[in-house]
């Protein structure tokens, strides 16, 4: 069990999301930062889709009721295990009774905490992802509360790992690549020139459903309403105000506003780490550019999986004794 001593600002159980139920109006939900979710699970020796915790802005405090291996990825919340700093994008073995405290995110918005074997939560419609508005998934379809006990597998361990720098996302203000959408011609003038012209501010009333933006207004030719059709994460729609909203994983499955464009999937993890008050920029790309972006992301995921499979490399030391050089290999060995 993992005991929730303090759930922080907003903590939910997520996996890679619910599929097969959009036709019934059930949103996909799932970890907003696909990359960090996969990284945390892989570092913990799990399947990439295993249920883990998504912590928002302020992580909270948790007690382990069994020995296990844990992994942290995503936003750095200055984690401490019984008061000792714990690296982000890494996995560590923890002992029964140890307490993990996570503070405010220095940068980024969402941290992921995976435990070896994943949380043992019953699936709802094929997934453990929490969708709070529908009241399904995770812990009774709601955010975690103080006192919650999350069942988890007991694990003898596994290898502790630190993700190398080149596999960690770089913290830069995101430039989001977008593909023009089906209703782009419902906007007047050179709407993409307007969209690309300045930064957009992420408004305070943004959440897992979507980010409301404030910036240059996107003008419609004749109204913002269309016959309701599908909404998916990454979709950028503009209601009558002309201020865009980027839909995220918890968004309703259908909606009736014009959709100007779609953020390419590989940029959604960057967006997921933005918080209210952050500024983002857009850049329209071609179909070809979006395919290249997908290829690049696929490559990163392949390297992440490769790293997770590797044993921690031995460290090499070079000693010189009486002008004689010795190469020594030091390997961490766990019982």
């Amino acid at each position: 069990m993992l005991k929730v001593l303090n759930p922080g600002f907003f903590a939910t159980i997520q996996d890679l999301g619910r599929t097969g139920f959009l036709a019934f109006g059930v949103p996909q939900a799932g970890a907003l930062d696909d990359y960090a979710c996969r990284a945390a699970n892989l570092l913990a020796g799990n399947d990439e889709n295993a249920p883990l915790l998504e912590l928002t802005m302020f992580g909270g405090e948790y007690e382990f009721c069994a020995d296990t291996l844990i992994a942290l990825a995503g936003a750095d919340m200055a984690a401490e295990l019984d008061g000792a700093p714990l690296g982000n994008w890494s996995s560590r073995r923890v002992k029964k009774g140890q307490k993990l405290a996570l503070s405010f995110a220095g940068s980024g918005c969402r941290a992921y905490l995976a435990v070896a074997g994943g949380f043992k939560i019953a699936k709802t419609m094929g997934s453990c992802s929490t969708h709070t508005r529908s009241g399904i998934g995770g812990m009774e379809g709601r955010p975690l509360r103080k006192g919650d006990l999350l069942p988890m597998a007991e694990s003898a361990g596994g290898q502790e790992k630190n993700l190398p720098g080149e596999l960690k996302p770089t913290a830069v203000p995101p430039l989001l690549r977008v593909l023009p959408g089906p209703q782009a011609d419902a906007f007047s003038g050179d709407v993409f020139a307007v969209l690309e012209s300045e930064e957009y501010l992420i408004e305070a009333d943004s959440d897992r459903m979507g980010y409301r933006l404030r910036g240059p207004s996107l003008k419609h030719k004749a109204g913002a309403d269309i016959i309701s059709d599908a909404l998916i994460s990454g979709g950028v729609q503009a209601p009558g105000s002309g201020q865009p909203i980027i839909m995220l994983n918890d968004c309703q499955t259908t909606g009736g506003y014009t959709k100007l464009c779609f953020v390419v999937s590989p940029d959604l993890p960057l967006l997921a780490q933005c918080r209210p008050g952050d500024r983002i920029k857009f850049r329209a790309v071609t179909e070809e550019e979006s395919l290249l972006a997908l290829e690049e992301y696929k490559g990163r995921l392949a390297r992440l999986r490769e790293f997770a499979k590797e044993k921690t490399p031995a460290r090499l030391w070079r000693l010189t004794v009486s002008s004689k050089r010795y190469d020594i290999e030091i390997e961490e060995v766990y019982k």
Partner: peptide, 10 residues
């Protein structure tokens, strides 16, 4: 057939 991002069509 409309393009709706890099992983969906309508």
């Amino acid at each position: 057939i409309l393009t709706t991002g890099d992983r969906a069509v309508a």
